[in-house]
Write a protein that binds this DNA or RNA. Sequence first.
DNA 1: ATAAGGGTTCCACCAACTGGAAGGTCAACC
DNA 2: GGTTGACCTTCCAGTTGGTGGAACCCTTAT
Lengths: 137, 137
Amino acid sequence: MNIGDVARLSGLPAKTIRYYEEIGLVSPMRSTNGYRTFRESDLHKLTFLSRARSLGFTIDDCRALLELYVNTSRASADVKKIASEHLVRIDAKIEELIAMKKTLSHLVHECAGDNRPDCPILDDLAAPSKPAVPASR
Amino acid sequence: MNIGDVARLSGLPAKTIRYYEEIGLVSPMRSTNGYRTFRESDLHKLTFLSRARSLGFTIDDCRALLELYVNTSRASADVKKIASEHLVRIDAKIEELIAMKKTLSHLVHECAGDNRPDCPILDDLAAPSKPAVPASR
DNA sequence: ATAAGGGTTCCACCAACTGGAAGGTCAACC
DNA sequence: GGTTGACCTTCCAGTTGGTGGAACCCTTAT
């Protein structure tokens, strides 16, 4: 299979697949004309990566997950650990966004949105010492 | 005021403030020794930026908001538009994360997390054609 | 004199791609 | 056999919003 075929089948752009090769996530063969040649196993890996990335796993996570995926003597605890930690990050991000949303939707609601200059949104942004998210990192 | 002072007062790292100068968001003066000298108005801008960034506005949004902020003949509608569009982006992001969370927490729950290799998480990642978020962009 | 604690510039790096230029290859059609 | 068009290749640059570090200057106190 050429790169276009696995791109279609995995749902990843060809550019991304080349990038994944560059960073060592897949290692397709090369045919005599220089084209990449993908095996079934490469396609499986790419599909795996596509799905893992769409679940928000970082490339580093994907690398670790891929290793566990191909290693049939893995412990499911290792997989679960990576996924659980990712879940914690997702939760934190959701909370952060919800806090932003809350503040912002309040402000948007308050703003007349006409051609006068008075604007509660700008007033709030200009008001000092009010972190949107109550301080973490 | 030197950069350290406005850094403390605005809550932004000095590095970030230098970066904001580089991209033209603030334009402090320079004293004879080459140090940046910040006026009150610069501090106000930096505080504004700090808060706007913490609400998730992009730098481009911040640039536009800052212009409206200093322009006293603005129309609040212009501000509201930027904020509303940002709110839409936040909502979309929240939805995306919640979809991920849903899938992932389900999988984590299913996984035994012991030293055996069987793992529903890997099984799912390997299963083809299941976008985590039902397809948009 | 020197040490601490500011400040300065510049260059490189992070994630995870994406866009585009310049060019090679292949299969089909006339 | 020539040409078109769809593939493929590499390489370089840009994206977003900074961050880290090196090498060096300035000021003040001891």
